[in-house]
Design a binder for these strands. Structure first.
Length: 669
DNA sequence: GTGGCGTCC
DNA sequence: CAGAGGGACGCCACT
């Protein structure tokens, strides 16, 4: 029975789906629809336990009713002063801001809630506005009286996603200080695979408390209210519960973080990073709207032309954006050879890779490739970007998320500024639209080959270390070792191929995929892989060790002790296990690089602040930092940034930083 | 809401 | 016999 379930589990990739389970309903669905063995539900549940999906199980099985604490509205000066009295004596306070928008840079503060001990919280409504709304204390005087407490670093602040509150308060002229525990970040350090660390999920899992859903206050859809239209009584329950949950969660999460030895990582990296990210979001990036609009018009006319040509070649009109319709035209109407199916629906793939193969056979393929590229740029990087420019600031204020990736990297959204095109003619033009303020320049600083340097450090491979110590070209070096004398004939081409091999080592690529990328046979690719590992024995040993340790411990680890659970390594299904293996070997490298750049960001932020400089850090793109620099600070900031980044930690190889200046983001490289 | 695809590091 | 590359976000089509 158990074996049967086990097999079915892996076959159905239940484990993978389960990681993405968003709520109880979805889990319920998984359980109910698991027909093959659903008869023995208890066994199934037990198996989930073994597979370490206890988080979701517990949430599913143990969620209880809403806990209604002692929650009070503060709407007169006397109670407000009483509250301030208590706040002044508090060692720690959980706080939450209620606003009109999910985007903190656009949000207007509506009210504040505070919790000094679990089960007891206060809501101070400030700007509720609806017919017959009750009198509220004047916002300006409440905020100015709160200010000294919020700015007092001795009163420790607790919150869920406190970066949000920092930004909202900063816009009200309050510099939040003494940020201590962010329950979202704490939860992320414990379970980086979760992806979502919402208060409702954390409350259910760690406290077995149900949170009032936001929609219950505001409704949803087109008629959704903003928080200022929510009745003060309802808002009080909601806001007080948020502060209460943050306080209660912090008392559960912090000991767990300590028990897992993640406290230093939190205190030295993630906690100080919160303010750095908040300031970056507040700063935003200036965008040349006219240039973008002009580009949009150019793209429009080019797309129309291409569209016409494509229809002509196809002999019919169809939606070029629809992979389904396109595959009909390519593979049925024009009878071009299909070579790959899509993963889920088993349709015929029309991905770039396939179209490139078809390009020599039929001009339609090439035209579609060009169409796709331009359409992508127009929709994602011109139109969507224009929409997200803040009309007040003329800048885009991305959101840097600290709790999304499994490896410790940041992510960016609304808009995602970490995937702005970097290549191609049109890509360049998009980057030209990212510009500095008048009298300023952009400075880009990126770590040169940080992941390969980390591989050298972690593996202690003497050849890699020597290459980096003497600052030689790592890809050329690999080319020499893997391809031998052939390098002399085509040095550039061999270097390009060696670069692919170097990355494939970090990603754990197999011979099959490597072969495709190198446009050679799997047997040949396997030879290259074998050659690489015989030249770099220590790398091979290290990667094997990384996987072995992750299997033993249940998690992969970075040099600063960040942990990522990899339950896939326990899977009986070989494909799942292999995926786990690749995560286990890549995570220490990618994750350590993330740790390092985070540390550098904190250091640079502090240096800029302590020197009273006006330079602003505005972007992070995994191994790159972008700054907006007053022309007068140019000579000062360059060595400062380089020094901070290169000397942020001591590895067995040097860290190298490349710097570039420009009047726009395209120029800095 | 899911899948295909494409952009970045 | 399928599937064989780490980590993200977001647009469009389609159901």
């Amino acid at each position: 029975m158990r074996e049967a379930i086990r097999k079915n589990l892996s076959r159905l990739e239940l484990s993978r789906n389960l990681v993405r389970v968003e709520d109880n309903l979805a889990l319920e669905f998984e359980l109910e629809n698991f027909k093959p063995c659903a008869a023995d539900r208890e066994t199934l549940i037990e198996l989930y336990r073994e597979l370490e999906f206890t988080a979701f199980l517990q949430e599913h099985l143990e969620q209880k009713e809403v806990v209604r604490g002692n929650f009070r509205t503060i709407s007169d000066m006397d109670s407000f002063r009483d509250f301030l009295q208590q706040l002044g004596q508090a060692e720690e306070v959980a706080l939450d801001t209620e606003t009109t928008s999910l985007f903190p840079t656009q949000a207007r503060l509506v009210g504040l809630s505070f919790c000094l001990k679990p089960g007891e919280a206060y809501y101070i409504p400030l700007r509720h506005s609806y017919p017959l709304a009750p009198n509220q204390l004047p916002a300006h005087s409440v905020l100015s009286e709160l200010k000294p407490y919020l700015e007092n670093p001795a009163i420790k602040k607790i919150g869920q996603n406190i970066k949000y509150d920092y930004i909202v308060l900063k816009k009200e002229g309050i510099q939040l200080q003494g940020i201590h525990l962010d329950t979202m970040v704490l939860s992320y350090l414990l379970e980086p695979n979760w992806g979502k660390h919402s208060l409702d999920r954390l409350a259910a899992y760690y406290l077995q408390e149900a949170k009032i859903p936001f929609d219950r206050l505001t409704g949803k859809g087109k008629k959704q209210l903003t928080f200022d239209q929510v009745p003060v009584e309802k808002a009080t329950d909601y806001a007080c519960q948020d502060a209460h949950l943050a306080m209660s969660l912090s008392r559960v999460l912090w000991p767990r973080v300590q028990a897992r030895n993640l406290d230093r990582l939190y205190l030295e990296i993630e906690l100080p990073l919160i303010e750095v990210l908040a300031e970056m979001e507040l700063a935003g990036v200036r965008v040349d709207l006219n240039l973008l609009r002009q580009l949009g018009r150019e793209l429009e006319s080019q797309l129309r032309q291409l569209e016409k040509q494509i229809y002509e070649m196809a002999g019919q009109e169809f939606n070029i954006n629809s992979p389904q319709q396109l595959s009909q035209v390519l593979f049925y109407k024009l009878n071009l050879p299909a070579s790959k199916k899509t993963r889920v629906t088993r349709g015929l793939s029309t991905a770039t890779e396939i179209l490139e193969e078809l390009a020599p056979l039929h001009p339609l393929a090439g035209a579609v490739l060009e169409y796709r590229q331009l359409a992508k740029i127009k929709s994602t990087y011109v139109e969507a970007l224009i929409e997200l420019v803040n009309p007040e600031t003329g800048r885009v204020h991305t959101s840097f998320n600290q709790t999304v990736t499994a490896t410790g990297r940041l992510s960016s959204s609304d808009p995602n500024l970490q995937n702005i095109p970097a290549r191609g003619e049109m890509g360049k033009k998009i980057r030209q639209a990212f510009i500095p303020e008048e009298g300023h320049l952009l400075l880009s600083a990126d770590y040169s080959q940080i992941e390969l340097r980390l591989l050298a450090h972690l593996s202690e491979d003497p050849v890699l270390i020597e290459t980096f110590l003497s600052d030689r070209d790592i890809h050329a070096e690999t080319a020499r070792r893997v391809f031998g004398p052939a390098v002399e004939l085509f040095p550039e081409e061999m270097r390009r191929r060696a670069k692919i091999i170097n990355f494939s080592v970090i990603y754990g690529t197999g011979a099959f995929s490597l072969a495709k990328e190198l446009e050679t046979s799997p047997a040949e690719a396997q030879k290259f892989i074998d050659r690489y590992f015989s030249e770099h024995r220590r790398v091979k040993e290290y990667l094997d060790r990384a996987v072995e340790q992750a299997k033993e411990k249940g998690y992969a680890e970075t040099i600063f002790g960040r942990q990522r659970q990899i339950p896939e390594l326990k899977s009986p299904d070989n494909n799942t296990f292999q995926a786990g293996r690749r995560m286990a070997l890549n995570t220490p490298i990618q994750g350590s690089a993330a740790d390092i750049i985070k540390l550098a960001m904190i250091k640079i932020y502090r240096e800029i602040k302590s020197h009273g400089l006006k330079t602003k850090m505005i972007l992070q793109v995994h191994d790159e930092l972008v700054f907006e620099v007053p022309e007068t600070e140019k000579d000062l900031i360059e060595p400062l940034v380089r020094d901070c980044m290169e000397n942020i930690c001591s590895l067995k190889v040097p860290l190298k930083v490349r710097l570039g200046w420009g009047k726009n983001w395209a120029e800095v490289k």
